[in-house]
Every structure is written in structure tokens, then in C-alpha cells.
Nucleic acid binder design. Structure first.
Lengths: 129, 129
DNA sequence: CGTAAATATACCTTGACAGGTATATGCTCT
DNA sequence: AGAGCATATACCTGTCAAGGTATATTTACG
């Protein structure tokens, strides 16, 4: 099991991670909230633990699992290289739509007026560094 | 081949995506830049295309492939739920380190002074909405 | 029109991983 | 100590996807 990407490729593991984002949980709690067999939960938790996505502490017979940030940050870092791209993409699209708006603003009825909606992408904050 | 996560689980596919972030490329260019056999490149490109990660246009015998933003944005959206978490995590860590600094600031030599370094996480900009 | 280049597809083999069943380990409480 | 709960591990099996080899398709060009 190599990269963080293979880890989060598994739907059940993603479900577990999403569950843990709110608070730490025991195996049993995860088991019944997600409705999967205990043995499955345990095995996925093992994978997640060995990959550093979660850590556990012992509470009597239970083990409490909680998230660890690093591996997810790693995914985020990989994704970073594409953000500039899709910002550019959305910008270009907007410019295109603006042009269409303008070109159309002379003639007839004007049935569909386009609205500027908040596309909350990261705009250049000079963080190019 | 279900989710976008399975698509990017494959290292060669991630390599292709990273390559395409700079500009569109032909199959042959990808092939030799990444040093993998043409048949492999073509098959991965097929997967990427069917998943919407790339699109292609025909240029004589070549096909030029370029990125499409949507699937990567989807990954980004999934990741979003964890950002608040790891921001909180880093904040807590910083507070902890601050406390250690303070507690240590009475006594002896003070060999290692900790420096505030720029952890460029997304700080609350009220974008909770 | 035939050949060569660029790319796609078909088929096969192999390996890896997820899930199931059964069982082991560890802890608590009486 | 023994019973019972919570969790982990071992083993087996089916599935699926990646890579290799061979071949098909498309296009340019002499």
C-alpha cells in the first residue's frame, strides 16, 4: 500500500475519515454508524493507521480513533499545482461569458440575463511567492 | 472505475495530469517525457478522458490532450471538510508551543528559542458562510 | 495507392486488495 | 478465575485493474 492516494481510493475508508472529522470515535461507533461489519472496520482502520491518517488511544476495551492531518495535507499539496490552472480556467470562462453578454447587449428582447455568481476560487493574492 | 479517487490512485495517471498542467501535449510527447510505453499512455488517457479529467482534440495523426478542471475540483471539495480540522490542529499545536516557550522563559541559558514561522493555512476569513 | 507514423484497441496473464468466516487477544467485572 | 464484550488477526476466495504483446485504425505523404 504505497501512496496516500491509494488509501483514500477506498470508499469505506473515505467514509471513516469523514466520520472522524467531527470527533474521535470507537470502533463500535464507527461500525454501527456506517453499517459495516466490525472486521471490515478494523481492517480499514489498520490501513489508515499505518498510513498515518488516524491514531488511536486505548480506553479500556475500546480504542478511540482520531484523525491526523498530515496525509490529507499531502493530498492537498498535490492538488495545489492544479488550483492555479482551474482558476485560470474559470477566469477565462468568465471573460468569455462577459463577452457574450456584451455582444448580445445590443439587440432584441434579452430573455436570459447572466448573473455574476460567487465562484469562490482562490484569487491571486500574490501567493505565487 | 467508479470515483475520481480511484482514477488518481494510479501513479502514472497522476504523472500524466501533472504533465498536462503546464500545457496540452500529444500522446507521443507524454510517452517520452514519462518514459512509459505508448500503449500504457493511451490506456491511461482513455481512463482519464472517460472520467472527465482530460479532453482531446485531433491534430492530423496526433491527438492533443489537455486538462479539464471539474474532477480535480471534486477532489478539492471532498478535501474541504478536513481543512477546518487541520487548521484547528495547527492552531492548537501553536498554542501548545507558545505555552512551552513561556514556561521556559524564566530559567537558565535559553539555548533554543522557537521562531514563529509562517504556516500558510487558511485562517478564518469568515468564509464559514 | 502503398507505406510509414501516430494512436487506439483486443486479448491474456498476473498480482493485489476487499470482504467473509473463523479465531485470537485483551480488558472488565463479579 | 471465568464469562462476556470489544477489537484485532489469519486465512481463503473472487474480482478487478495494470501491463505486455499483438493488431487495428487513421492520417500524411511520396
Amino acid at each position: 500500500m504505497e501512496s496516500v492516494f491509494e488509501i483514500i481510493a477506498e470508499p469505506n475508508r473515505r467514509a471513516i475519515l469523514s466520520l472522524l472529522v467531527s470527533s474521535e470515535q470507537s470502533v463500535g461507533e464507527i461500525e454501527c454508524q456506517l453499517g459495516m461489519p466490525q472486521t471490515t472496520v478494523s481492517k480499514h482502520l489498520r490501513v489508515l493507521r499505518e498510513a498515518g491518517f488516524v491514531e488511536s488511544t486505548v480506553d479500556a476495551q475500546r480504542r478511540l480513533y482520531r484523525l491526523r492531518p498530515e496525509p490529507l495535507q499531502e493530498v492537498d499539496m498535490w492538488l495545489a499545482q492544479f488550483r492555479r490552472f482551474w482558476s485560470a480556467y474559470v477566469d477565462a470562462l468568465e471573460r468569455h461569458l462577459d463577452r457574450m453578454d456584451r455582444d448580445q447587449s445590443t439587440p432584441t428582447k434579452q430573455k436570459t440575463r447572466r448573473k455574476r455568481r460567487g465562484t469562490n476560487r482562490e484569487r491571486d493574492k500574490g501567493e505565487t511567492k
